[in-house]
Design a protein around this nucleic acid. Structure first.
Lengths: 218, 218
DNA sequence: CTTGAAATTATGCAAGCGTATAATTGTGGT
DNA sequence: ACCACAATTATACGCTTGCATAATTTCAAG
C-alpha cells in the first residue's frame, strides 16, 4: 500500500530542458513569477523537482534560459512573416507592425510573462544583456525595414524614427495586452499601422494585411 | 539580558497607513513583488509585522491600496504642470508629453514598480478596475488636450489619436525606464514630443519645454 | 544476460512566508 | 493620578520555498 516508486522514461537532454523551460514560462504567464516555483514547474513538465537541478545549476539558471527563449520567440513572432504576398517596402513594414499587435504576440499572457521578468532584467547583469540585445535586435530589424522606404534620411533621423516606431508598437502592445476588451477587434493593429505611417510620413494603412482567420500554420 | 520590549509611539492612523504603503512601494521597486514581504514592509516602515494586519485586513489589501496610490501619483506627475508658462495648446501638450518621459515619472524604479503589479492587475478584478480607471483617466486628459489643438476631427478620429499618442508615450516610457543608458540625455522626451506631433500633424518640437535643472519643487 | 553509468525519483532540511492570537504599552478623558 | 481602551509588540503555527543528498530505475553497450 505504500506509494510505489514512480515509473519514468529517459528523454533526451534537449527535450527535458525545453519542457522545463516551457513549463516555467507557462506558469509565469498564468500566475506571475511567484507561481513558478521549482515544484510547480516540475509538476507541469511531468517530472519531479529534483530533476530541475540536474539540468540547471539553480532555479536562476532555468529562469535565465527561459527569458532568452522568450525573447527569441517574441522577435520571431513579429518578423517571421506568415505569407507576406506583398512585396513592397510599405507592405512588409505594415505586416511586421500588424503582426506585433495581434495574437499570438499581443496576448494577456505575453504581458504577464514579460512583466514577470522585469525585475530580474534590471538586477541581474546577465539578463540585462539578454534584454538589451533582444531590444536592439528588434529595433535594428525595424530600422532596416524603414530604410527601404522611399525617401532619404540621415542615419540620425533614421535612428530616431526607429526608436519612435518601436515605442508606438511597444506601447500599443502593452495596452492591448493589459486591457483587451477596451478596444475593438483589430483596432490596436490598425492604430499602430496608421501611427507608424504618420511618424514616417507614409500611408501604411492601405497596406494593412487582413487578420488571419483560421489558417492552420505549418 | 532578555530582549527588552521595544518602545514605540502612537501615530495617527493615516500616517501609519501611508508609511506602510510607501514602504511596500519602495520594496517592490527595489526587489520586485517577492521582496515586499510582510516582515520587510514592517521593518522598512519602522514597525513590527503584526501592525500591518491591524491597519489592513490582509496583505492583499495593503497591495491594493498601494497600487491605487501609485496610479494616482503617476497621473499627477504627468499632468500637474510645474510652471507651464506657455499658454498655447501646443505648449501644454508638449509639456505633458515631456513630463511623462522625464524623471521622476520615467525612472528605472517606476518600471519595476509597475511591473510588480501587472499580474495582480490581471487576476484580481478590483485591481483591474483601478488599472482601467487610471489608464482611461490619463487617456481622457490627453484627449482633452488634443481637442484644444487647431483643427476639427470627429470624435472617432480623436479617440484613435489619443490611443496612439498614449501608446507612444507608454512605449517610450517603458524603453527609457528599462534601458536608461541606451539613449542620450533627454533624447526620449524629444522623440516623444516629435512623434506625438507627427501623429497629430502638428509641430510640437518647437514647444518642447527645457529640462528642469535644479529647481527645488515645492 | 549482465553490468555500469546516467537519469530520475524520493526524502529531508533550514529558512522564510502570511496569518492568528495573546501579551504589553502608550495615551487621552476624568 | 488613575483607568480603560486602542495601538503596538511578541510569539507561535502551519505551510511553502529552494536546495542538498541518498536511493532507485532505466537503458545501451558488451
Amino acid at each position: 500500500m505504500s506509494g510505489e516508486r514512480r515509473k519514468f522514461t529517459r528523454e533526451g537532454e534537449e527535450r527535458r530542458r525545453d519542457a522545463l523551460i516551457a513549463a516555467a514560462l507557462d506558469l509565469i504567464a498564468e500566475g506571475g513569477a511567484q507561481a513558478a516555483t521549482v515544484r510547480a514547474i516540475a509538476e507541469r513538465a511531468g517530472v519531479t523537482p529534483g530533476l530541475i537541478r540536474h539540468y540547471f545549476h539553480s532555479k536562476g539558471d532555468l529562469t535565465r534560459a527561459a527569458y532568452l527563449n522568450l525573447m527569441q520567440r517574441l522577435t520571431q513572432g513579429s518578423f517571421a512573416a506568415p505569407d507576406h504576398a506583398t512585396d513592397t517596402p510599405e507592405g512588409r513594414l505594415a505586416a511586421v507592425v500588424a503582426a506585433s499587435l495581434r495574437p499570438p504576440v499581443m496576448t494577456p499572457g505575453a504581458l504577464g510573462l514579460w512583466a514577470g521578468f522585469i525585475h530580474q532584467v534590471q538586477s541581474d547583469p546577465a539578463m540585462t544583456e539578454v534584454h538589451e540585445a533582444g531590444y536592439l535586435n528588434y529595433r535594428d530589424l525595424l530600422q532596416a525595414l524603414i530604410a527601404t522606404l522611399p525617401g532619404v534620411w540621415t542615419s540620425d533621423v533614421l535612428r530616431q524614427q526607429a526608436i519612435a516606431c518601436n515605442g508606438v508598437i511597444d506601447g500599443l502592445w502593452l495596452e492591448g495586452c493589459a486591457l483587451p476588451h477596451a478596444f475593438a477587434e483589430d483596432e490596436i493593429a490598425r492604430i499602430g499601422v496608421a501611427s507608424v505611417g504618420a511618424i514616417l510620413g507614409v500611408d501604411l494603412l492601405a497596406h494593412l494585411p487582413p487578420v488571419a482567420t483560421k489558417e492552420t500554420d505549418e
